[in-house]
Computed example of a mutant assay.
Amino acid sequence: MKIAVATERGMVCPHFGHCEGFTIYETEGKDVKSSSFVESPGHRPGFLPVFLHEQGVNVIIAGGMGAGAIEIFDEKGIEVVTGASGSTKDIVNQYVQGELKSSGSICNEHQHAGECGGH
Rank of each mutant, 00 (worst) to 15 (best):
P14E: 11
P45C: 10
H43F: 13
N58K: 15
F73G: 08
E39C: 09
V57Q: 06
H119S: 13
F22K: 05
F73K: 02
H18D: 01
G104T: 12
G83L: 01
R44L: 14
E28H: 15
H18T: 05
N58D: 14
M65F: 11
Y95C: 08
T88P: 00
H15D: 02
E115P: 05
Y95T: 02
E8V: 08
K2Y: 00
C116E: 01
H18F: 03
Y25P: 00
S87Q: 05
F51E: 02
M1T: 09
L48C: 09
E26M: 12
G117R: 00
H53M: 08
S87K: 08
K101N: 14
G17Q: 02
E71W: 09
L52F: 10
E115C: 11
Q111P: 12
G42S: 06
S40V: 09
K76W: 12
S105I: 11
E79S: 08
C116R: 02
E79I: 04
T23A: 01
G77V: 11
S35A: 14
K2G: 10
I91V: 15
V32W: 09
Q111W: 10
D74Q: 12
N108L: 12
V80D: 04
F16N: 06
M11E: 01
I106Q: 13
G42D: 04
G118A: 06
T27E: 07
V80R: 02
I78L: 11
G21V: 09
M11V: 02
R44C: 15
Q111T: 14
F47D: 10
G21M: 07
P49L: 06
T82L: 03
E99L: 14
Y25L: 05
K30Q: 07
S36F: 09
F47T: 13
D31G: 14
G118Q: 04
G117K: 00
I60N: 03
S35T: 13
M65Q: 05
S85Y: 02
G42M: 03
A62I: 04
S36I: 11
A113V: 12
G118I: 05
S102M: 10
P41H: 08
E28V: 14
H110S: 09
A69L: 04
K2A: 07
V38K: 09
V80E: 02
F22R: 04
I72P: 04
H43Q: 14
H119M: 12
A84V: 10
E115A: 14
P14D: 12
S40I: 07
K33G: 14
G42N: 07
K33V: 15
F47N: 09
E26C: 12
A113S: 13
V96G: 04
E115F: 07
C13N: 00
T23Q: 01
F37R: 04
Y95W: 10
T7F: 02
G10S: 08
E71D: 12
N93E: 15
T88N: 01
E8F: 09
D31T: 15
